[in-house]
Design a protein around this nucleic acid. Structure first.
Lengths: 233, 233
DNA sequence: CCCATCAAAGTGTCAGACGATTGGCGTCGT
DNA sequence: ACGACGCCAATCGTCTGACACTTTGATGGG
């Protein structure tokens, strides 16, 4: 009830959305109507709407059929928000590389097992496409492929939330260390690990995939912590 | 570069913040200066600022020493955002109760072990305070205490991110099922499990805590899925 | 020395106007 | 009859200017 009018209005509408009173896809009254309904100026209404839009609770379009529509946040939205937040917490040194990697262990090791159990042939193909040859691939493409491989594996696990909360973790690590000079043989090792994981997932060997992922993440942890020490002096 | 001016401006400032060019605590130019600097009206500037504020990237205060200040999102901020997002995904039936609980297993079971190893006496005291007596406690207080117990345990694990990503999961479950009629003996069972966990953490018995947490989450999973089936008919 | 009062710097809010975009509808030509 | 074209209305996007409210610090009187 307190605070600036735009915050009150945003809170009011947000409450209506999360409670389900406003269904996804539903259209909000236009800005003039909201302005009249709540007895505030249109600028105030717009500030409230921008607030909601940046949380992916609404989507606004122009034109005669335009307006603000209630929207369900997608996995990608949540993931992106979480990524910037985690990145800033990491930059503020409130989260260490070891903590990020230990979470990846908790999540990705079991995920590899689930992926081996539940993967479809299509997902297996996606996984193959995300592999790379360290001899020919260079630069940005390598980092992107590396991320894609883990992303596809998470997706194949069948639990969409797993992807939402894990992807930000390795994306933060990748942008943090992507441009640093990796130890000799690092990318070759990564390519080997990925190839092994691909084969185990192809063979639906859940136990093997779990073990391989654990070893792979250990490799990454070692390399990242080495780079971290170097960059800190 | 495309899109509405407020989005461009917000993206510009956001980039400066995440890149570290604008340090936490630093003050942005005031609205008039931003308006002049970017050649847009003040309303546009304000819409961009509301956008950033709702992502906890800036904080705005009034008064002569007021303005917009770069702020690092806290664990609570991230957690809250994630919670609304997960809640909406769950409401849209894109995430099941089983998937939420299986993530809790992945995260909270090892967290219980870490908490047993690293807990301080103070955290143990917090844990004790979060217990409740099912015979005397009633209603909302019970749900809140139940959540607090898990929250304190996660915090004691020593990895702040663990709390950030796990808390939204059980908060969503709690608000989803908190008001439903729980099976007979459910709360007594929860209280027993919590008491056992408390004792094991007090004794620094990591293996025991892991086992007890696994069992506790199994109890919760059973109860939640039963309530879920009932509520869906 | 303390307290009340005031000035200054900002954000918060409003009203009104006009531009930009989009989708529908009617018109016109074929 | 049908398709292309262009106009029109609805809605958001943006600007301007004004004033109110909040907070801090300075100032002056008791």
């Amino acid at each position: 009830m307190t605070g600036p009018a735009y915050a009150v209005l945003a809170g009011n509408i947000r409450a209506r959305i999360v409670s389900g009173e406003l269904a996804p896809g539903e259209r909000l009254p236009n800005e003039q109507e909201l302005s009249a309904e709540f007895g505030v100026g249109r600028s105030t209404v717009r500030e409230a709407l921008r607030s909601l839009a940046s949380q992916d609770l609404i989507q606004t379009t122009r034109g005669v059929a335009g307006g603000s529509f209630v929207s369900v946040p997608t996995a990608a939205h949540l993931s992106a928000h979480l990524e910037t937040g985690v990145a800033l917490m990491a930059a503020a040194e409130r989260v260490t590389v070891g903590q990020l990697m230990s979470l990846r262990h908790l999540l990705e090791v079991p995920a590899a097992g689930e992926a081996a159990r539940h993967r479809t042939d299509e997902q297996l193909e996606d996984l193959r496409r995300a592999e790379f040859d360290p001899a020919t691939a260079v630069g940005e493409a390598t980092y992107a492929a590396n991320q894609d491989f883990h992303l596809v594996l998470l997706r194949a696990s069948g639990n969409p939330l797993l992807e939402v909360i894990t992807a930000p973790l390795f994306r933060v690590l990748a942008t943090r260390f992507g441009r640093d000079h990796a130890p000799d043989g690092f990318w070759a090792c990564v390519a080997d690990d990925h190839a092994e994981l691909h084969d185990l997932v192809a063979a639906r060997d859940a136990d093997g995939a779990v073990t391989a992922m654990r070893r792979h993440l250990d490799h990454l942890t070692g390399a990242y912590q080495q780079m971290d020490r170097l960059s800190r002096g």
